[in-house]
Design a protein around this nucleic acid. Sequence first.
RNA 1: GGUCCUGUGGCCGAGUGGCUAGGCAGAGCUCUGCAAAAGCUCGUACAGCGGUUCGAAUCCGCUCGGGACCUCCA
Length: 497
Amino acid sequence: MSQLKIYNSLTRQKEVFQSITPGRAGMYVCGPTVSGESHLGHARPYITFDVLYRYLTHLGYKVRYVRNITDAGHFEEEGREAEDKISKKAVLEKLEPMELVQKYTNLYHWAMDQFNTIPPSIEPTATGHIVEQIGMIEQIIEAGYGYVVNGSVYFDVKKYAAKYEYGKLSGRVIEDLLETTRELEGQEEKRDRADFALWKNAAPEHIMRWKSPWGIGFPGWHIECSAMATKYLGAEFDIHGGGMDLQFPHHESEIAQSTICNHTAPVRYWMHNNMITINGRKMGKSYNNVIKLTELFSGDHPMLEKAYHPMTVRFFILQTQYRSTLDFGNEALQAAEKGLKRLWEAYEWILKYDVGSTMYDAKDSELDAKVNKLVTELDEFMNDDLNTAKVLANLFELVPVINGMKDKHIAADALSSTTLALLQTQMQLYMNDILGLKNITNEESSKLKDVMQLLIDLRKEAKAKKDFVTSDKIRNQLAELGIQLKDEKDGGMSYSL
RNA sequence: GGUCCUGUGGCCGAGUGGCUAGGCAGAGCUCUGCAAAAGCUCGUACAGCGGUUCGAAUCCGCUCGGGACCUCCA
């Protein structure tokens, strides 16, 4: 089998994944800032890296998956208003800061659950790691790369760049960064424009504040990830993921901080997912074009023609390779919805299919070879930088084969028993374990099942008597309730909710 | 302005120089009491203009368009 290759933003090429510790993988993913509701764009990294987590686990790695919660708020470091988003909103909504943070954290967890993402091994909060962050800042100052001004601490980028490569990850040139013509307020304290805050002095009205060796304040933008990644994954770990928009300055600065403290570059493989766009433009607060997850699931948004099930969204995201942009659209979402339904029904059927215990060879060797190819290629596609788009394409190509068996125009023994067994295990592995897909419809109760069986029996009886008025009435009224009755080729009936 | 990415059929999207990606929509057919579902068949797309090559959506150049980052941002 081929080896897993992932695209490393640091080297700008696909590399074979080799973990630092054999059999184990450490993975850090930038989590949400819980100062507001998550939107569709946020869903992408969490779903992407959920699939990576699942895949690494499938490959046999013991994975420690760390994904932080930024609950200390990110600060307008360059000034403008120099205030904490969380504290500002807290006033508006008349809530305690931590109450607000809790509310959005709960909502985020709920959404992640809807998406069927596996919770990370550790989900550290920024506020829970103030001590570690202060410790790290002290180390940076001791090493001579941090300086204190008026109760704030800044990282000396120019000095760092003289010895290390600041800008390597994001492709920046340090000279350009130092010469930026951009005019921003609140820069007076910094020696250089490129410097960034490690610790900020808190204004009196600032609600989230902690004691530090430099006075009352709060941590800078980037230090939390450095501190928590170091604490839980070590000085050097395997994978760091996040959105492309975090590459600079967030991840670049993270590298600088960790490098000074730990004397080594922190991350082997940097992975960045691309953005979800809407009308070709990145979905983001500043563009005023976000669709919140709650809105997406309820359909309550002017741009939405209808509500979309979380699984539809997950599937929609997985139909694209994670490094490509994905353009949102009702038509595209509805295509995903229908596609998933068709795929899922074929999947459920083949899972239940009884291959039997007697071994037999394929009657249709050509078809048998095709199925084998489609099924074994799945691993290759995943190994090629998680090309879930290709994985799904192959799964779709299996659908007519499965439905052909169901309709009996493909003979039961067209495929060998081994191929069938492989088909079943691979379908289950990919649909369930790796892609993390679930049934889009609600779990049905056993009572509903019985009622449906009753209706099916009634319809069958009516049909037998050629009483089509009754049979159509049953079918049509169920359809109005969103329950679809389907006559099978063999005279049976099935339904889908 | 700097750095970088990108432009594929109605929509979303794979695409490693030569071999039909796939999904959805649309058209026709089969099955069906009628439907639905399912199956089969179909569009022969690669922004434009040059170039390299036996051969380019895929490499190079130019033009035009879109976007990201440089500021919080998934």
